[in-house]
């Protein structure tokens, strides 16, 4: 549905987007993840036809965005970072205006406007001026605007930015619902959002794609080893050699916690499930096993890992600014 091929955007000597290639299948929700200034917004602006690329091409719903912009734009809904609202217009007038310029047929305009207002829960604000809307409503009117022509492709630039937790959940739910009938690309800083809403993730850093995969695979791929966390009621230094002797265990780190128990981290090689052996070893020696759980590498860790790896490759010592 969306095909991005070798996209490059340069501003003078500065390369904002560098040879980005990915594709989004019909009905898929793709998360676009990256630190500030990674090139997310630029890429989205190119996909929506707001600006041309320096090199490469984008095909949206079978239409080349540069060669047939009108056809491609007819099939695209776009929510920019700041919702593009006209302060003087009421929500209804605004959505009617957008419906008209997006090519919704005259007699269908009213129905479409009512429909998107209902879906985005802004119907109660229909006759209020956009200037007087709260941030949450602005964002939702922005989303309503993007949906107005029932586009094949939805491009959402940080759709949940500035919303309160309840609204965030509602918006994510809405995006998920839309997933089946619309192909969606959404950018975000918020990592749990990606694992909750997206089918696939593209991680971008300094204008380059550093990873494309499902959230689950990304987590799995980056876990070179499994880590278990145990809480054990035991004293003395016998625990370390006892656990290190189990086949497959590569590292044991013991940290006494305040209440007289021990926190233990155990690394094991991939493919070895050592949980049974760990439990048997502890219980067999008469110690109390209070907790045993796998420590998963979170998307946050993956994200930091990938985006900072990038900077070490390029030998740039300054740490990457990540606001997540």
């Amino acid at each position: 549905m969306i095909e991005v091929q070798h996209l490059t955007k340069r501003y003078g000597p500065f390369t904002a987007v560098d040879d980005v290639t990915f594709r989004v299948e019909a009905g898929e929700i793709l998360g676009f993840l990256g630190p500030n200034g990674a090139g997310k917004t630029t890429t989205m602006r190119i996909i929506t036809g707001y600006m041309p690329a320096t090199e490469g091409k984008v095909i949206v719903a079978g239409h080349d965005v540069f060669e047939a912009p009108i056809e491609a734009k007819k099939r695209t809904g776009y929510l920019p970072e700041t919702p593009p609202l006209y302060p003087d217009m009421t929500v209804r007038d605004y959505l009617t205006f957008v419906a008209r310029i997006k090519g919704v047929a005259g007699r269908e305009v009213r129905g479409r406007v009512d429909d998107v207002m209902k879906r985005t829960h802004v119907a109660d604000m229909a006759s209020r001026h956009c200037a007087k809307l709260s941030k949450g409503y602005r964002q939702r009117v922005g989303l309503a605007q993007a949906l107005i022509n029932n586009p094949d492709v939805l491009i959402l630039d940080e759709p949940t930015a500035g919303l309160d937790p309840k609204q965030i959940i509602e918006t994510r739910q809405l995006i998920k619902e839309l997933g089946g009938s619309h192909t969606t690309v959404l950018s975000t800083h918020i990592l749990p959002e990606v694992s909750q809403t997206c089918h696939r993730v593209v991680i971008i850093s300094k204008g380059r794609v550093v990873a494309v995969d499902t959230p689950e695979n990304l987590t799995a791929r980056l876990r070179g080893s499994e880590t278990m966390f145990l809480q054990v009621a035991a004293t003395g230094g016998e625990i370390e050699p006892a656990l290190a002797g189990i086949p497959g265990v590569t590292r044991v780190a013991v940290t006494p916690s305040g209440d007289g128990t021990l926190g233990v981290e155990v690394d094991s090689a991939r493919g070895h499930d050592v949980r049974r052996d760990l439990a048997a070893a502890i219980v067999g020696r008469g110690w109390g096993l209070l907790e045993l759980r796998p420590m998963r590498m979170s998307l946050e860790d993956i994200f930091l890992h990938l985006t900072t790896d990038e900077s070490t490759v390029e030998a740039q010592p300054e740490p990457e600014a990540v606001d997540a």
Binding site: G49, P84, P87, I101
Partner: peptide, 9 residues
């Protein structure tokens, strides 16, 4: 106000 993004897309 950024509404130019609406018109141009």
């Amino acid at each position: 106000s950024g509404t130019i993004e609406l018109l141009l897309t």
